[in-house]
Every structure is written in C-alpha cells, then in structure tokens.
C-alpha cells in the first residue's frame, strides 16, 4: 500500500495542482451562475486569454517580477472581459439567448486569439524562481506544481473571507438572496453583478495563466476548459464555493490519474460521474443554500 502511494505521490500531487487551477477557473463560473443565473459560455475563452498573456509576456525564462506582472495583467484583462460580458448580458433575460450571446463572444475571442497567436500549441515556460525541484519521498518534484496548490489554497481562503466576513461579500450574498430588497436600500445591484462577473473572470484568467506551463496555450483549449469547468460546477453545486473546491479536486484527480491509465477513460469517467450526480443529487454534492454561498 505504502509502495503504491510512494510511486503515485507525484500523480496525486499533479492531480492536486491541476485541481487547484481548475478551482480558480471554475469558481467564477459557479458564482456567476449562482448570483446572476447566467451560464457564461465564454468562460473558457477568458481563461485562454490569461494563458496567452503568459505567451505574450514571458521570454525564455521569466523573472519573478515578470511573473507577478503577468498575473496582474491577466487579472486586469479578465476583469475587463468580465465587465464587458456583464454589461452585454444584463439586458438579455432569456437563458437561451444569454447562451447565444456568450457563445458568440467566445467564438469571437477564440478566433481573435488564434489570429494573433497562431494555431500551433504555444508553450509557456515556468518562472525561474519556481523552476527548481524539491525532494518529496526521495523523488524530485517540481516546485511549480506545489506553488499551484498553494495558489489554490490562498484563493480559496481569501474568497471565503471576502464572502463571509466582509461587507462587500455580504452585499453579494444579499443580492443573491433578494435582489429587489438590496436595490431598495440604495445599492446598485447592476454594479454588484458586474463586479462578481469581473472578479470571476479575473480568477479564470489568472487560472489559465498559472495552468499554461502545464496545459499550454492553443485554440480549442477554451472548449476543453469550459467543459471541465461545467462538470466541476455541476458536480460541486452551482453557486457554491465549497462545491467548486470539491468538484475541482475530484476532477483534477480523475483527469490526472485517469489519463495515465487510459487516455479516454478520464473523460468518460468524468461525464459518467456528471450524469450520476445529476440523476441522484441534482443540486450538486455541496449545494449552495441560496445563491452564492460558502
């Protein structure tokens, strides 16, 4: 037993690392759906934008400063994209038309990215200060992946604090629970919703950037990311922070372990799991009680 664990520590850690960035990407999708009842089909494209920020900015071996600058730019780009999407979506009430709109935007963004960066897979190097390895159970393990896990933990904690302990978070939760009431006390909910959309998109872009050294950047990745994010969000529970975390961890592990067993097996397992959750526990594994919730 211990021997299996030892041999597979790397795989498990890889699963955690993937899960961490998937969490960053998926949590925005989940919160936007929980608060605005909008299924943002452009979410994968936004994430891809973040990955291409890395392509554009990193040279051969990016410095520490470059790394953090890239993260900031990715976050800004994502935030702007989210704001634009929120403004475009808000006059559209019907869910199917929202899907049409966000998918249209996704197509435009993906095509523009392909125009600028080309159709080939672009690789993104790991920043220098994180490029070493560390000895784990006698085997070398890349520090960068540990950093990804750390990033996921930090974001999860920060989000929890923001949602549960700050006034801004309380306003977001209140807007979900009773939008009319919040409007009545003078808060412009349109602004609140745009901020949630923007924040979620910013996280998605940063997640895409952080995942880029592993996933690369190429056309078509946005679709794959969107599908994974949808699976995570539905399995975990729409609008739930904890659900997104659990879903991301599960998907990260299945995707990593499964791929090493049989390539297709992972995806099949994921969608079979999705179907199972939908049939037996349609509200998700850790559902939000009402809208955005931890």
């Amino acid at each position: 037993m211990l021997a299996w664990f030892d041999a597979n520590t790397a795989t498990i850690l890889n699963g955690l690392a993937l899960g961490a960035v998937l969490f960053l990407i998926a949590v925005g999708l989940s919160l936007v759906f929980g608060t605005m009842d909008v299924l943002n089909l452009a979410h994968g494209a936004v994430s891809l934008m973040g990955a291409y920020v890395g392509v554009a900015m990193y040279g051969a071996a990016p410095t520490t400063g470059m790394f953090f600058l890239a993260m900031a730019i990715a976050a800004a780009v994502g935030f702007a994209a989210g704001g634009v999407l929120a403004t475009m979506v808000s006059p559209v009430r019907n869910h199917l038309r929202q899907a049409l709109l966000t998918l249209g935007m996704a197509l435009i963004v993906a095509e523009l990215l392909q125009e600028v960066f080309g159709p080939e897979v672009r690789s993104v190097p790991v920043p220098e200060f994180l490029s070493s390895t560390v000895s784990l159970m006698g085997n070398p393990y890349p520090v960068y992946r540990l950093a990804m896990v750390a990033a996921g933990i930090v974001v999860a904690v920060v989000l929890y604090i923001v949602l549960e302990r700050t006034r801004a978070g309380a306003i977001v939760r209140a807007t979900v629970a009773d939008r009319a009431m919040v409007e009545a006390i003078g808060i412009r909910t349109k602004v609140v919703l745009a901020l949630v959309f923007g924040g979620g998109a910013a996280l998605a872009a940063v997640g895409g950037l952080l995942a880029a050294p592993i996933l690369g950047a190429q056309p078509g990745l946005d679709d794959q990311i969107l599908l994974l994010a949808l699976v995570i969000v539905v399995i975990g529970g729409l609008g739930s922070l904890r659900g997104a975390l659990l879903g991301a961890l599960v998907v990260g592990q299945v995707q990593t372990i499964g791929v090493s067993v049989v390539n297709e097996f992972a995806s099949f397992l994921l969608f079979a799991a999705l179907a199972a959750v939908l049939l037996f526990r349609p509200q998700g594994l850790l559902p939000a009680r009402k809208g955005a919730h931890v």
Binding site: M88, V92, R97, L100, L101, L103, G104, M105, I108
Partner: peptide
C-alpha cells in the same frame, strides 16, 4: 459567426 450570434441576440 460569433459576430452574427451577438448581433442576432439584440
């Protein structure tokens, strides 16, 4: 096509 979709929504 993406542009067409977006325009059509409005």
């Amino acid at each position: 096509l993406g542009v067409v979709f977006v325009i059509a929504v409005y």
